[in-house]
Simulated scan of single mutants.
Amino acid sequence: MAAVAEAMHVSPSAVSQQISLLEQEVGIDLVERRGRGVDLTIAGRKLVERANRIFEELESARADMAELKKVVAGDLRIAAFPSVAAALMPKTIQTLHATHPRLEVLFEEMEPEEGMNALRSWQTDIALIDDLNVPPGLLDPSIEITPLIEDVFNVMMSPDHRLAVMETVTWQDLEHENWVMDTASSTYTRMLTDACQKSGYTPNIIARCKGFEVTRALVSEGCAIAILPGLRARKDLQGTRICRLEPEIRRRISIAFRKGEKRSPALQVFVQCLEQHAAEIR
């Protein structure tokens, strides 16, 4: 209830009241309490399935009309996580403003899992995701993805670090280092911890940060090392040294959207523009 309320920008009690009204209208319970939370009943799940198909048809019809008019206009909502957003979104938005002034690109920073949830609940039109946080096997059948770019992780350290003279650093080289970890994604933390454990040790994490600004400050002062995506290593790294990491960890970044909207002119021009700028930095 709290998550729905947050997504819809209303109070939890308002969500509860709306569900109660809907239950009165259909004459059957749609949710049931499970501990401190609630779950959908069989009737609730069936209603959600029907509603999803209805929304998909509405989106498909809207795409049909836009395609017939050939008009690139209106709002296009984009969800993307920080590293890919910083690398690609500014130029993409700037280009689209110049080439399609009637199209308004509305961007919101979201981690891949958040973006997928927003896409499923019609809170965004496009989500940029990666295969580390959103494995292909877990994708909703109603969601289509287009591959965008591959990214390789690097190690970041201070310029006077003992390993800074090396072009390539191994996981074993980092065994006795202090680590600062980006906690925005639990999958990211788990992935790095697993990679260290495969090399025979558990990383000594001395700091957990949600934002890159603090991570960079800790690294530049020599307090710790950090692992960061190659896309993020393109800018704003004054006072640090970036080295390649072996064995490498690679992720595939994709564009996700609802299948019914594939023919939307606005979606098509955004995808084309994003792919163009991704190709420039690949």
Rank of each mutant, 00 (worst) to 15 (best):
V71Q: 13
V71S: 13
V72E: 04
V72Y: 02
A73V: 09
G74R: 02
D75R: 12
R77I: 00
R77F: 03
I78Y: 01
I78V: 05
I78A: 03
A80H: 13
F81A: 04
P82N: 03
V84H: 04
V84W: 02
A85Y: 04
A85F: 05
A85Q: 02
A86R: 05
A87Q: 08
L88C: 03
M89V: 09
P90G: 03
T92F: 04
I93P: 02
Q94A: 15
Q94E: 15
Q94C: 06
L96D: 01
H97Q: 15
A98P: 03
T99S: 09
T99H: 06
H100D: 14
L103W: 12
E104N: 13
E104Y: 04
F107E: 08
F107K: 11
E109M: 14
E109Q: 13
E109T: 07
M110Q: 12
M110R: 09
M110A: 13
E111C: 05
E111I: 06
P112E: 13
E113A: 15
E114A: 13
M116I: 14
N117H: 07
L119V: 11
L119C: 12
S121M: 06
S121W: 05
Q123F: 14
T124A: 15
T124S: 12
T124I: 12
D125Y: 00
D125W: 00
D125C: 00
L128C: 04
D130Q: 04
D130N: 12
D131S: 11
L132I: 13
L132K: 11
L132D: 14
L132F: 14
L132A: 12
L132C: 09
N133C: 14
N133W: 00
P135D: 04
G137P: 02
L138H: 03
L138E: 03
P141Q: 07
S142N: 03
S142R: 06
I143E: 05
E144N: 03
P147D: 10
P147T: 14
L148I: 07
E150Y: 10
D151K: 12
D151W: 13
V152Q: 04
F153Y: 06
N154A: 11
V155M: 12
M157S: 11
S158T: 03
P159K: 06
P159V: 08
P159L: 10
P159H: 08
P159G: 11
R162C: 08
L163C: 09
L163A: 02
L163H: 01
V165K: 00
E167W: 01
V169I: 14
Q172L: 06
D173K: 13
D173C: 11
E175M: 02
N178V: 06
N178G: 10
W179E: 10
V180C: 12
T183Y: 02
T183L: 03
A184D: 07
A184N: 10
T187M: 07
T189Q: 14
T189M: 13
T189Y: 07
R190P: 06
L192W: 05
T193G: 09
T193H: 12
T193R: 09
D194E: 11
Q197H: 00
K198F: 08
S199W: 14
S199C: 08
T202S: 11
T202L: 07
P203F: 03
P203T: 03
N204K: 10
I205G: 05
I206T: 04
C209P: 00
C209K: 05
K210T: 08
F212K: 01
E213I: 05
V214R: 06
V214C: 01
T215R: 09
T215A: 01
T215P: 02
T215C: 05
T215G: 05
